[in-house]
Amino acid sequence: MLTILLGVLVEGFAYAIMALGVYITYKILDFPDLSVDGTFPLGGAVTAVLIIAGVNPLLTLFISFIIGGIAGMITGIIHVKFKVRDLLSGIIVMTALYSINLRIAGKANLPIFSRESIFENAFLARIIPEGLNPFLDTIILLIIVVIMKLLLDLYLNTKSGYLLRSVGDNETLVTSLAIDKGTVKIIGLALANAFAALAGSIYAQKSGFFDISMGPGAIVIGLASVIIGTNLLKRNSAVKATTAVIIGSVIYKACVSFAISLGMAPSDLKLITSVLFLIILILGNDRKRKVKANA
């Protein structure tokens, strides 16, 4: 039971970082960004190659973050400068990244089991007592998730963060402030995809391999986490939206894990993912309708 719980937390936290990115695009920017499906595995591919080349695992997190940001920026530039519709810009980048990821990794599955990672390295082996080992992954992930959440919260309270929030809220106001709204959108997309690639890097290090199949469906997991989190905790103003997204991600992974324990095969994973997402959307709509009927 404990193993299952820890497994859910580990998965939930790893995907929560990507979900924070999806929160930026979907909730703050109001931009349906599908490039996440490409940038999440991009982080994984870059990390696997770098780790095999002997780069410090912590450094790979940083590099993945930057590279994901560049990919997001490309989505933004396609949308803003070339006036391609938001959804299509994401699809273009996502599709291109599929091949790029294969090129980076060299093949569809690149194992890094035996290498040092942020979860298994000489430093941790020295300072962490034996007894803590089963919890180690969860603790490390929790620390990273909390750091990323706090950084995002901080950013959203800066002048630049205010601008990001207002561009999704009311573009006209941003123009009125004598700011190019396109630039703000590009920054938002870069940030969101940087989060996604960082999550991909962590995910690859946790699972011990990069696999091309980690991409498709990532956006659905991210969206589901954001929607579960923000809907469930909507009335609770003490919980920040970013925290809600993390909780949403864990709940979502728990649901998936529950479905698998009922006897679904691991190959059904994407089916479960999308059906669960559909159920969440329908439940969300249902609640809205009730509110309207009572009003």
């Binding site: 950013y155 309270n157 800066t158 002048k159 630049s160 963060g161 205010y162 601008l163 009125s176 402030l177 004598a178 700011i179």
Partner: peptide, 10 residues
Amino acid sequence: KGKSFNLKWG
């Protein structure tokens, strides 16, 4: 408005 929207507190 007219100033830089940087990383200082909003």
